[in-house]
Design a protein around this nucleic acid. Sequence first.
DNA 1: TTTGACATCGAACATTTGTTCGTGTACAAT
DNA 2: ATTGTACACGAACAAATGTTCGATGTCAAA
Lengths: 246, 246
Amino acid sequence: MPRTSNAMDRRLKKIIQFLIEYQEKNGYPPTIREIGREINVNSTSQVTYYLNKLEEDSLIDRSGHLSRSIRVNPAGYELIGFNPDEDIVVEKHENLLDRVASAVENLWKIPVYGVIVASEPLPMPDDPTFAPDTTIDVARSLFGINEKPGNLFALEVSGDSMIDAMINDGDTVIFKRQETVNNGEMAAIWIDDDNTTTLKYFYREDDYYRLKPANPTMQDIIIPKRKNVRIMGKVVAVVRQVQSAA
Amino acid sequence: MPRTSNAMDRRLKKIIQFLIEYQEKNGYPPTIREIGREINVNSTSQVTYYLNKLEEDSLIDRSGHLSRSIRVNPAGYELIGFNPDEDIVVEKHENLLDRVASAVENLWKIPVYGVIVASEPLPMPDDPTFAPDTTIDVARSLFGINEKPGNLFALEVSGDSMIDAMINDGDTVIFKRQETVNNGEMAAIWIDDDNTTTLKYFYREDDYYRLKPANPTMQDIIIPKRKNVRIMGKVVAVVRQVQSAA
DNA sequence: TTTGACATCGAACATTTGTTCGTGTACAAT
DNA sequence: ATTGTACACGAACAAATGTTCGATGTCAAA
């Protein structure tokens, strides 16, 4: 089942989690075969493949390339979070402080700047120190490994106007503050002429912009380049608390 | 120069010291050859001999008998003596412990039982001790105050078949395990006749069940009561990590 | 449809690492 | 001095662990 980049991502996280737990429990790191057994992969090369990915992202370190010598970097601990019911008393390394500190960073409080409505620009404060009245707690593990909390903000969707983006009334959308996106990334886009904000996958083609709704049954929207569009942020996650009724 | 039991004693201590330092420095234990190099003994069997002595005295543990799997027992640490700054570390650690604990209480690990596909029943294990492949971290604040983590489980959506429920390919849906829902709550519903799983707002009317898609532009589905429908769980939240493209 | 990048697998292979064994040396007790 | 035990050495061996390689399947772009 390849290309399930989501599944792989989870497996990568699971590996880190296992590395931490195993080390906690046994006092030494596991072998790649033990890792494979844990994540239900019995190809050692596949585990190596994962391990390389993790090392590329500096989540682990195995510069030694010896047996049982995989180390989890602080970034790795941060990604997963620290499991407190493990006995930490035995562990008394200098990196303990890092680990404990990062455990507190498991939960990111993301500022909710307001409500997003199709017919209005995003309510983004120019002042970066703007203190929002509400925040939303989000597990750090929901985000990519390179994400930083400072760049993120959230908006609550009001109305059904984002339905083509598969986003409901009441959903909370988490954005990353940026003014450009790569082709194929979902962005909040302000279209000057139409005076609307919309959430679409964004493609910059030769002569036009193409906005692709998340709902695959819907048509792409073509916008000539002379029209003014502005990218307000990249959509990184959507959180929906399902209520009763509707 | 044998029989210098004094010299041996010193070497044994040196081994323990080295074990501790090496572990501190590298994050994993050394090999017997590395130990030998450290104590100027290049006979692996001799190191083994020492190691056996240390294990007899319960100063170290290598019950695993695997590579790089030597652990220093508390008695071993005691033998060498604690460095004073360790106590400071422990102390600081205690200070942080509360924060860690509360941070983790606020983060629930929800088991991901598998993939939900329209044409198949939910992959819910009968065995409650079933160990899921993966878990997803979710901020506790996403749920109501009466929610308990034990009742919750998650599934990853595969395919576009849940689009009418405003749920995308790749989304993670969090359910509460229950076999009935109140009118107007969204549930995972297995329809026997059609052999499908669907996510809809559920209404039990006088003569029929009414299934209302989350997408308000879509029609309700009416199912006569004679048909067999089974509620697999209540949808409490949807989490979407927005990927590139689509 | 073809192509290429990515994800996956398992087996063969190479290296590291631990264990065993035969031998040697010193020294205290006989 | 002889002998037994504790200490010591290094080579050969066995087990573990990591790496490489060819093959396959999938998906998206060309």
